[in-house]
């Protein structure tokens, strides 16, 4: 292991990691938003919209992110829609993640017993209040483990960004392997940086899951 090399290229990896985290976070935030909206549409069986959401979920879950990204990045400009690589990364991650988050929320919503809603209604709550104070908090706490698993999955998926020439960790590693043949060092840094990004989420995930199971969820 050539430590000098590692020291020299550490900043490059750091920059790449920041790019991964930034685009990843924005994409995931949108994925959560899309997921919430889709889950609500499916839960309330909104006419027409539910078919659109179902179609979207099927499309998004049955195609790889890389194919989605290539279509967005290389295909869309041909019909006059130009997105830069960063935007494509965010859009692709949101498109992919939205369906996964939607499934997580939806199964959380469905896990809340109908009679829980009725007991809240019988206390005189409006449907909106029932949703806000009873169903949603319960559904979210039920779906948190699936939710964090999805975040980890999406963070891992960001590794394909290099294919649309985003200078992320994979891009940097491949670049350095190609340029200097420092394979061991490049791969070592690659693994370390991915662990730095994903391990904390995974640890937080298992802590939260344990807390949910043994203590109470919020107030």
């Amino acid at each position: 292991m050539n430590w000098e090399f590692i020291e020299k290229y550490l900043p490059m990896y750091r920059e790449a990691a920041v790019l991964t985290v930034v685009i990843g976070s924005i994409g995931i935030a949108f994925a959560i938003l899309i997921g919430l909206i889709c889950a609500m549409v499916l839960y309330h069986k909104v006419p027409v919209a539910k078919h659109i959401v179902n179609g979207y979920v099927e499309l998004s879950r049955n195609t790889p992110l890389l194919a989605q990204l290539f279509f967005l990045y290389y295909g869309f400009p041909k019909i006059g829609i130009n997105l830069n690589a960063e935007l494509c990364g965010v859009a692709g991650l949101a498109f992919l993640g939205g369906s996964y988050m939607s499934e997580a929320f939806r199964s959380g919503l469905e896990a809340v017993d109908k009679i829980q809603e009725e007991s809240a209604l019988s206390l005189g709550m409006t449907k909106y209040q029932v949703m806000k104070y009873v169903v949603l908090p319960e559904a979210i706490s039920i779906s948190i483990p699936a939710f964090i698993a999805n975040i980890i999955f999406l963070l891992k998926e960001t590794s394909v960004f290099s294919a649309i020439s985003l200078m992320d960790l994979m891009f940097t590693a491949k670049d350095l392997i190609g340029l200097y043949y420092k394979t061991t060092e490049s791969l070592f840094l690659l693994v370390i940086f991915y662990l730095l990004i994903i391990l904390p989420v995974s640890v937080i995930g298992s802590l939260v899951e344990r807390r949910l199971r043994y203590a109470g969820f919020g107030n």
Binding site: S159, V160, M170, L190, L195
Partner: peptide, 19 residues
């Protein structure tokens, strides 16, 4: 599970040649 599959592919593809 913790590593992206692409990283695993890199490790095996590039790493095996090297190591």
């Amino acid at each position: 599970r913790i590593l992206p599959q692409l990283v695993l592919l890199f490790l095996v593809y590039f790493g095996s040649t090297r190591a």
